Simulated assay, not measured.
Amino acid sequence: MIGRRRLLAELAILGGLILVLAALGPFGSYATPLGSRLLHWALYLVIGYAFFRPVIAAGSALARQTGMSRLVAIAVACVFGAFPTSIIFVFAAAGPAWRSVTASHLAGAYLQTLIVGATVTIVQLLAERGAVPVFSAQPEPALADPQPTAAVDAIEREVAPALLDQLPPHLRGPILCLENEDHYVRVHTAQGSALVLIRMRDAVAQLEGQGARVHRSWWVARRAVSGTIRQDRSWKLRLVDGREVPVARASVPDLRALGWLNDEPPAA
């Protein structure tokens, strides 16, 4: 759910962009009257906002799965997201004359949609940087076959007060893992997760001796690991809350030496 403060920030930036584009009149729109330009860009950006808003979530998910930079993953999501959006724009504008739509129309609409969609995505990123609080709480989804409470209680003493102080009170508890999201770190605890404005390496430094950096985007508490999953040459760690965390191939030798990559939880 979008926070009210974040939503208002996004809409404010979006409104400013509508005025700028209406004044500049790009893509040949300058030849039309100001009122028409204003309406055109208002509709275009608002519809683009609705279609492109999931792009950041999709890009973040892609970054977590592949290990690529979050910004690069978001750019890739924009490239793919512009395809269905441009098709909808073209055929909706053509109306009854949809049979006259050509490949050149689609190509031009795709380029324009990609530019507008990227602009909308930048609006969201700007709002994310400037409008959200230091943390953004997110309750954990229910996971199938949860581990016994005792498994979570076993890591109760391994907490990082300095990092936990930046979380909402109801989420403070045993830290299970850290997930890198660009300039933020999502701190996963036994009670849920929250997004904290901190560099990954600084967050990991606060937890020295309590776990390991298993992937460029992940740090895991050693007592949070309940098992491992191996698929050919790829490994994943299964945590006590049912989460599965990918292991980078470069980290496999170190984790194997620590005794993490076996059928049993890693030794304390």
Score class of each variant (00 low, 15 high):
A127E: 01
A127N: 03
A127W: 03
E128F: 06
E128I: 03
E128Q: 04
R129F: 13
R129A: 15
R129E: 13
R129M: 11
G130C: 04
G130N: 03
G130T: 03
A131Q: 03
V132M: 15
V132W: 08
V132R: 12
V132S: 09
P133A: 09
P133F: 06
V134S: 11
V134M: 09
V134T: 09
V134A: 10
F135M: 07
F135Y: 14
F135E: 11
F135C: 11
F135W: 15
F135I: 02
F135P: 07
S136F: 06
A137H: 10
A137Y: 08
A137I: 02
Q138P: 01
Q138F: 13
Q138W: 13
Q138D: 08
Q138I: 11
Q138H: 13
P139F: 09
P139Y: 07
P139N: 13
P139K: 14
E140T: 14
E140V: 07
P141D: 14
P141F: 15
P141L: 15
P141A: 15
P141R: 15
A142I: 12
A142V: 14
A142N: 06
A142W: 13
L143W: 14
L143I: 15
L143E: 14
L143D: 05
A144E: 04
A144C: 03
A144I: 06
A144W: 07
A144K: 08
A144N: 03
D145P: 01
D145E: 12
D145F: 15
P146E: 07
P146W: 08
P146A: 03
Q147D: 12
Q147E: 12
P148E: 14
P148C: 07
P148D: 15
T149M: 10
T149A: 12
T149E: 11
A150Y: 08
A150K: 08
A150I: 11
A151Q: 07
A151K: 09
A151N: 01
A151Y: 09
V152F: 09
V152M: 11
V152A: 07
V152I: 06
V152C: 06
V152N: 04
V152E: 04
D153H: 04
D153C: 00
A154C: 01
I155C: 04
I155V: 10
E156H: 01
E156K: 04
E156L: 06
E156M: 03
R157S: 11
R157L: 08
R157K: 08
R157N: 08
R157E: 06
R157G: 03
R157V: 05
E158H: 09
E158P: 02
V159T: 13
V159Q: 10
V159R: 12
V159W: 00
V159H: 05
A160N: 02
A160L: 01
